[in-house]
Design a protein around this nucleic acid. Structure first.
Lengths: 214, 214
DNA sequence: CGACACTTTGAAGAGGTTCAACTGGTGTGG
DNA sequence: CCACACCAGTTGAACCTCTTCAAAGTGTCG
C-alpha cells in the first residue's frame, strides 16, 4: 500500500534496512560527510543526529537542499558525483552502503529496486514541496511550515528541538537570518509559539500554524 | 556511463521507450491531462508539444512545478494519486503506459527498474535546481536561467520558441507577470536578448546569460 | 569571568509586488 | 479588407516585504 509522503518518509524503506553496513561512522557537529563534486560511492542513512545537504553559488550564496533526520536517506545520486555537500548539523552517526552493492541488489531483487524508487520519489516529493514553499509563500508561512515539518519528522509533539542554526533555517527557506529571527519573534508575540531557548520551540497554537501553511 | 542532468534529460530513458502504448492522445492548448488528486493510473511521455505541471494554494497562488518538452516524462508518482495537475501548454500529443504495467516490468527486468530510477532521479535533480533558483536567485537570474533551460531542452540554438505565457513563466519562477515582463525588456535593453515577437526570444549574448546563472 | 559566536533588534534601502492604465497583436464580423 | 473587440503583454507609480548594514544582547565554553 502506498502511503502519503510524511508517513512514507518516516517509515524505513522496505528491503533496504538490512543491507546497510554494520559500522556507524560518527561525525561531529559541522563536519563534512561528503562534498559537492566528490565521487558518490556511498548512500547514507541517518542513524542519529541530523544532516544538511546544500549547494553554494559562486558568490557565496548558499541554498540548503534538505534536512535529514534519523531514518532518512541521503547521498543517492543519478550521477556518479555528488551534486551537494552533506554536513552533520549535530553530532551524528550514519550507516553507509556502497552504491555498487545497491545497484547489484536492485538488479537482482524487485523489492530492492522498488525501495530505491521509493527513496528517490520521496526525495522528489519533498523537493517539490520545497519549491512550492520558496516560490509562493511568505516569510511567515515558510517559517511556520519548517517548524511543523521538523516537528513531524522528529516525532515531536508540542516541544521541538531545533537542530539547526538560524543561518541554516534561512538558507533552507531562501531568507536572511534576520528575517528568520524577526519572524520567529513575531510568531512568539502572536502567541503561536514560544521560544524558551534559541534551539527549543514550543508549538502553542498548532492549528493556527497549520492554517498558514495549507 | 552516467551523464550530467541536461544530457540525461534529453536522451530517452533506456528500456522504457518500447513499452509505451502506440496510441498518442492529443490535447489542445490549456487542456487538462490529469488533475491533482486524481488516480495516478498512467505515466506519460510528451511526444510533441509541451506540458506544465502545477499545484495551487487555497488562495489561488499557483506554483508551476515543471515544464515538460518532447521526450520528457511526467505523471510518475510514488502515491497512487497525482500530486499535481498537468495541462498542455500548446497542442500536445503524449504517450501513456499503465502504471501497473510499469511496476510489473520493473519487477521483472532490472534495466526497466533502472530506467524508472533514472527518470525519478532526473526529476529530483531538476527540482533541486528549481529550489536553488527560487531560494537564492534574483528575478533577472531566474529569467535568464529559464530561457537557457528552454533553449537546451528544446534543442534550440540562438532562437527560441517560448511555448508558455508570461503567467506560466512567472508561476514557475516564483515572480509576478509584471516582473517577468520588465525583466525581459531590461534584458533586451541591455542587448542580451531580442524579442521579435512575444513568444520568440533570440539569445544575443548567451555567455553573458550563462554568467548570470552560474 | 571574559571572549567569541550566534541571535536579536533597529533603521534605512532595494527589489519585487500591486494596482491601474496603456499598447499591441489576433481573430472575427461587417 | 478594414474596424472593432478582446486578451496578453507592457509600462508606470506607489507601496510593501524582505534585505542590508549596524549595533546591542545572549549564551556558551574555555
Amino acid at each position: 500500500m502506498l502511503s502519503p509522503i510524511r508517513t512514507a518518509t518516516a517509515q524505513p524503506a522496505f528491503g533496504l534496512d538490512a543491507v546497510f553496513g554494520g559500522a556507524c561512522p560518527r561525525f561531529v557537529r559541522d563536519e563534512e560527510i561528503f562534498g559537492e563534486g566528490e565521487a558518490a560511492d556511498y548512500v547514507y542513512q541517518v542513524v542519529s543526529g541530523a544532516v544538511r545537504t546544500y549547494r553554494i553559488l559562486r558568490d557565496g550564496r548558499r541554498q540548503i537542499d534538505e534536512f535529514h533526520f534519523a531514518g532518512d536517506h541521503f547521498g543517492l545520486e543519478l550521477s556518479d558525483v555528488h551534486r551537494v555537500t552533506a554536513e552533520a548539523m549535530a553530532d551524528t552517526t550514519v550507516r553507509m552502503i556502497r552504491r555498487g552493492a545497491l545497484s547489484d541488489l536492485a538488479a537482482q531483487r524487485g523489492d530492492a529496486a522498488r525501495a530505491i524508487f521509493r527513496l528517490t520519489a520521496e526525495g522528489l516529493q519533498r523537493s517539490q514541496d520545497h519549491v512550492l514553499m520558496l516560490g509562493r509563500r511568505s516569510a511567515c508561512e515558510r517559517v511556520a511550515g519548517l517548524l511543523l515539518d521538523i516537528a513531524e519528522r522528529t516525532h515531536a509533539k508540542a516541544e521541538l528541538d531545533v537542530p539547526m542554526s538560524r543561518q541554516d533555517m534561512a538558507d533552507y527557506l531562501g531568507l536572511t537570518i534576520e528575517t528568520v529571527s524577526r519572524t520567529l519573534t513575531s510568531l512568539q508575540d502572536e502567541g503561536l509559539i514560544a521560544l524558551p531557548t534559541v534551539r527549543h520551540v514550543v508549538l502553542q497554537d498548532r492549528s493556527a500554524l497549520e492554517r498558514m501553511t495549507a
